[in-house]
Design a protein around this nucleic acid. Structure first.
Lengths: 258, 258
DNA sequence: CGCTCATTTGATTGTTATCAAAAGAAGTGG
DNA sequence: CCACTTCTTTTGATAACAATCAAATGAGCG
C-alpha cells in the first residue's frame, strides 16, 4: 500500500505524471535535466513553510501541505490541500502549513527552465499554464463545496477530488489512498466542526460509501459517492451542461421596504 | 450618485484605474492606444456570456456579472462577482451570467497588446499578472467566507470587499455604492437561503452597520463592520500576522476505532 | 387595475456547532 | 512492560444557526 509520506518517486517523475495527466505532457528527459531531485528539504508536521525558508517556491514531493487562513476565536480554514507533485507558492495573507511530515525540492531550477528560451521548454510553459488552470478549478470546487453542499456532500466530494489528484501522480492503490490527516485537519478543510465531521464520516462508512483504516481511505462505492456528492472531474476537458442553470431576475432591485 | 449600469467611464480609463490601484500603473496613453472602447456588446440580465458569443474574452465595463456553478435541486453558487474593469474569462465547468444589464468591450486588443514585444507593454504584462493575483486572492476570500464565517460576517465581509473593488475603479460615492442585485442573487453569492439572507441584512441594518435603499448600499460604520467581519483588504501589500496560527497535530492518524 | 416578481414575516424543521466527558492510540520514561 | 501523559476519536446532550414551507406585503410595469 502506497505511503504518501514516503513513496520512492522522484520530483521529476512526479511532475511528469502530473503534466501528462492534464494533457500537457513534457518530455521526461527535459524534466530530469532541470536537476530538481538533489535539492531537498524536510518539515515537521505543523511547520510553517516558505516564509521561514528563503526559498520562494518549492515542489512538494512527500506528505501533505495546507494553504491556511486563520480567523479570530481559533477558527481556521484550509483553502487548498497540496499533494505531491504540486508547487508551493505563498499567497498573500495565507500561510502554508505542513499537515504531515513533508519533503520538498527547491523549485528554482523549474523556474529557470520556464524562462529558458530553449524550444523544449515551450512544452514546459504550456504545462505550467495548464497546471495553474487546474489549480484554479480546484479552488472553485472548494467554493462550491463550502457554499452549497451538505456535510456529506462536502466530504465525499473532497475525498473524490483527492483520490483523483493522487491518482494523477500514481499515489493511489485502486480505490484506496493514504491520507494521514487528523479529523480536526479534515474539518478545517471541509469547513465543519470536528464533532460533526466525525459523525459525517461514520455516516458515510455506515452507508457503505467509505472505508477508513489507519490513515487509509477507501472509496467503497465510487459511483454512488460521486452521484451523491455531485462530483465531476476537474480534469475532464469537455464542458458539462448536466444541470439546469437558473435564470437571473429580470428587474433587479435590492430595494428593501422602509 | 453613481450608477453601476451606466457611468460614463471608458474601458481604457477603467483599466487604468484598476491597474493603478494594484500598484502596477500603466501609462494611460498605452491603454488608449489599444482601442478597446469602440467594440462594445450588451447583455440582458440572466444572459449567459462568452460561450454564446464567439469572443474568447471581454472586458466588463457596466453592470455586474457572476461566475456561476449550478448543482442539482436548483442549488446555485456564485463563485465570484465581476465588477466593471474586470476581465471576463470562462473557467472550465462554470458559466458567466449577467446579473444586471451589462455592457462589455471585446478584450482581444488587450490580449494583442500583452503579447506585443513593444517595451511599453512590459508594464501592461506586469499589471496583468498582478490583476490575476488579486483575483485569486478574492477567490480565497470567498472560500474563507463560505467555510468559516457566520451569515453576518459573510455578508459584511463580501460587501466590504465589493465596496473596495468598486472604489478601485472609482464607482463609489463615499461609503455608498450601487449594487442592483436581487436578494436571491446575493444569497447565491453568500451561500445562504434567500430568507436567511433577508433576515441577516435586516440585522445588519438594525445594528447600524448597513444602509440599503433602492439598490444602493451604504456602509454606515465601516470600521465596526470590518472588525465584526474580520475584514482586511486584499490590496494591502504587507503580510499580516494578526491571528494566532494553530499548530498541526504531532502524530496524525485518521484512525477510527474498528 | 392587474400582473409578476421581490421582499418580508411567521412557524417549523433540519442541520451543524458547542460543551463536556469518556474511551482509544501513541509515545515517553521509569 | 507498565504507568503516565498527551493527543485523537467517539459519544451524548443541548443550543445556535440556517433551511424550508407557506403566505402576506410591497414594488414595478403594462
Amino acid at each position: 500500500m502506497i505511503n504518501i509520506l514516503h513513496h520512492g518517486v522522484s520530483a521529476a517523475e512526479l511532475l511528469g505524471r502530473k503534466f501528462a495527466a492534464s494533457r500537457t505532457p513534457v518530455d521526461p528527459s527535459c524534466l530530469q535535466a532541470l536537476g530538481l531531485d538533489p535539492l531537498r528539504s524536510a518539515f515537521e508536521p505543523g511547520a510553517g513553510m516558505l516564509s521561514a525558508q528563503g526559498r520562494a517556491m518549492q515542489l512538494l514531493t512527500d506528505g501533505l501541505v495546507g494553504e491556511v487562513r486563520c480567523l479570530n476565536r481559533g477558527r481556521r480554514q484550509i483553502l487548498s490541500l497540496r499533494v505531491p507533485g504540486d508547487l508551493l507558492v505563498l499567497g498573500e495573507g495565507e500561510t502554508l502549513v505542513a499537515l504531515t511530515h513533508v519533503r520538498t525540492s527547491d523549485a528554482a531550477p523549474l523556474l529557470a527552465g520556464l524562462s529558458d528560451a530553449c524550444p523544449t521548454s515551450q512544452a514546459l510553459r504550456r504545462a505550467w499554464v495548464a497546471a495553474g488552470r487546474i489549480e484554479q478549478a480546484l479552488l472553485r470546487n472548494q467554493v462550491v463545496r463550502l457554499g452549497r453542499m451538505s456535510a456529506c456532500e462536502r466530504l465525499g466530494h473532497a475525498l473524490l477530488e483527492i483520490h483523483e489528484r493522487l491518482g494523477q501522480v500514481g499515489l493511489v492503490t485502486g480505490m484506496t489512498f493514504h491520507l494521514p490527516l487528523t479529523q480536526e485537519t479534515l474539518s478545517d478543510l471541509a469547513g465543519l466542526s470536528v464533532v460533526h465531521l466525525n459523525r459525517t464520516l461514520q455516516g458515510l462508512r455506515r452507508e457503505g460509501l467509505l472505508g477508513l483504516r489507519r490513515g487509509y481511505v477507501t472509496l467503497m462505492d465510487r459511483i454512488r459517492l460521486a452521484e451523491m456528492a455531485c462530483y465531476s472531474s476537474p480534469y475532464a476537458a469537455p464542458l458539462r451542461q448536466s444541470e439546469r442553470p437558473r435564470e437571473a431576475p429580470r428587474a433587479p432591485g435590492l430595494a428593501m421596504a422602509s
